[in-house]
């Protein structure tokens, strides 16, 4: 697992009424990223994978990971998810976060293809169990469902935005998961704020 890179993109900020330089970092499967930059937005696209968006509101630092359990039963499969969560947590703690103040939003775990093993639900259940077992504050999010979703997360203020991809795009996304990462598709579907 590695840390994601960041890039600058001009963006319209309706809350400010001005165009600002919005720094974006896309977190792909197997990566994680932490930051204390209030202008940075972390993005990812999730099918059956899960992203944990975690922050310490007092220290003003947060981060996102993106993981997929390999579908192996028992502890052999769980260790990848545990590793991803631990790397994110440890990176936050190194940046001044305190474990007891961490709040987590969980996204993803969808079932994009019916008929196959519901890997997404397994990923979602693991993430929920991890948050419970570790005594972390579960601050919301959106798990399961049958659509892919694009997530934006501002790690300092904890704001998260979810856009469901249209059903057709979700199927394309599911089919594309075995290919190299492609640029994010255009937004469609309902908008939810957290």
């Amino acid at each position: 697992m590695s840390q994601a890179a960041t890039a600058s993109t001009p963006a319209w900020e309706p809350d400010r009424g001005i165009a600002v330089e919005l720094r974006k970092a896309h977190v792909i499967q197997g990566e994680f990223l932490v930051s204390d930059d209030p202008e940075l937005v972390m993005t990812t696209i999730l099918g059956s994978c899960v992203a944990a968006c975690m922050r310490d509101p007092v220290a003003g630092v947060g981060g996102m990971n993106h993981f997929l359990l390999p579908g192996v039963s028992g502890s052999e499969g769980l260790r990848y998810g545990v590793q991803s969560m631990e790397l994110l947590m440890n990176a936050l703690l190194r940046r001044g976060a305190r474990r007891e103040r961490l709040e987590v939003k969980l996204f993803g775990g969808g079932r994009l293809i019916t008929g196959l093993t519901d890997v997404g639900s397994q990923n979602a259940a693991f993430a929920e169990q991890f948050v419970r077992d570790e005594g972390l504050a579960h601050a919301g999010g959106s798990l399961r469902g049958d659509r892919a979703r694009r997530i934006q997360y501002w790690p300092v203020n904890g704001r998260a935005r979810q856009v469901f991809l249209a059903a057709a795009e979700s199927k394309v996304f599911a089919a594309d998961r075995r290919r190299p990462a492609a640029p994010p598709p255009e937004d469609s579907g309902a908008l939810e704020l957290f």
Binding site: S75, L78, R79, V82, E86, R99, F130, D133, E134, G135
Partner: peptide, 14 residues
């Protein structure tokens, strides 16, 4: 370990 999940994984392995 400060993570209960990892302690459980190690314990089950042992």
């Amino acid at each position: 370990d400060d993570q209960q999940t990892i302690r459980s994984l190690v314990r089950s392995g042992l």
